[in-house]
Amino acid sequence: MNLLNLIRWKNLLMIVLVQMLIKYALLEPFGVQTALDGLGISLLIIATVCIAAAGNIINDIYDVETDSINKPDKVIIGKTISEKTAYNFFIAFNLIGVAFGFYLSHKIGRAPFFSIFVIISILLYVYASYLKRTLLIGNFVISVLVALSIIVVGVFELLPTLNSGNRVTQVLFFKVILDCALFAFAINFLREIAKDIEDIDGDYKTQMNTLPLAIGRERAKNILSILNFVPLGALIFYVNSNFYKQPIAVGYLLLFVVGPLIYIVIKTFSAKLKSDFRHLSTMYKWTMLFGMLSLLLYKFVILN
């Protein structure tokens, strides 16, 4: 159980869910030409999850001092799992992920795609060891990597089968995947800022350069409050443009995605305590989850 908590199994399950939704709720029901069979998508999921797990482990290794202040009850490294053992797991998960990525890239005849897994693995290490301590750059990079865990499905499924005969269809579905990735990027970026505000005490003592430390907790909260309107406005526009003829889809998105975002906007303005920002972080995760589940609604849009 300690290992599962170390690799943040709940976050990994979301990766599995989203990649399966793209394959089995978005692409296959419409007969889109794809490159991966059942085994192929399974290998892609395993590769992505393993590299993400390795990233979570190295992040915890470098965050032991910070976490001992911000969340001492959740520190695993050095307590239930030694740092040496954690490093071994980090190396093992990376090797598995990269190896599966190498095999899969050659299996679909796109050997250069292998570099995606190597780049993500390197970026996760650089993020944990350095970028996380730089102003907003770390927030941006980790959010890009979250988006890439979605885009990678489109890259492996659609690009290898792209030709002049199916270009319109392939591009249409790739754009849908990009829309989901952009939503995930935006929500995760906001969540990272909320987490920085929540963890300001530990980050200060470990000399990290986060937004709330650079400009103050209150100013950072005000910026977060303003930034919350970006995905909210974009989502309202997206729903109005693509789902306006489908009341069930509109109802779902308004109730489970737009509604929580409005709630987040209101709660951010009034947030003051550490617990308030922890609550906001949780709400961002739920909003992202329900946003990803909206992939089940695209059959109402694409077929009508």
Rank of each mutant, 00 (worst) to 15 (best):
L3M: 03
N5H: 03
L6W: 00
I7F: 09
N11G: 14
L12T: 00
L12V: 01
I15Y: 01
V18L: 03
V18T: 10
K23W: 04
L27D: 02
E28S: 11
G31E: 02
T34N: 07
A35H: 03
D37V: 06
D37W: 05
L39E: 07
I41G: 02
L44R: 01
I45R: 01
A47K: 02
C50H: 00
C50A: 08
I57H: 11
I57T: 15
N59Y: 11
Y62L: 08
T66V: 09
D67G: 03
K71A: 07
I76W: 06
E83W: 09
Y87W: 14
F89N: 13
A92L: 11
N94K: 09
L95R: 02
G97F: 00
V98K: 00
F100G: 13
G101R: 03
Y103I: 09
L104T: 09
L104N: 04
S105W: 02
K107N: 15
I108F: 01
I108V: 15
G109R: 04
G109C: 09
R110P: 00
P112D: 13
P112I: 08
S115E: 12
I116W: 14
I116D: 03
F117C: 07
V118C: 04
S121Q: 05
I122C: 15
L123W: 04
L123V: 08
L124D: 04
V126R: 01
L131A: 06
T134N: 08
V141A: 13
I142W: 04
L145Y: 03
I150F: 04
V155E: 06
V155H: 04
F156V: 15
L158I: 06
R167A: 15
V168H: 07
V168N: 11
C180Y: 14
A181L: 06
L182P: 09
F189N: 03
I193E: 02
A194T: 06
I200Y: 06
K205N: 04
Q207K: 09
N209Q: 13
T210N: 01
T210W: 01
R219Y: 15
N222G: 05
L227W: 05
A234Y: 15
F237H: 09
Y238N: 07
L254E: 08
V257Q: 10
L261C: 05
I264F: 00
T268R: 04
S270Y: 12
A271W: 02
S281C: 08
T282H: 10
M283A: 11
K285A: 10
K285E: 10
M288F: 10
M288E: 13
S294G: 02
L297N: 01
Y298K: 03
F300V: 03
L303G: 01
L303E: 14
L303S: 12
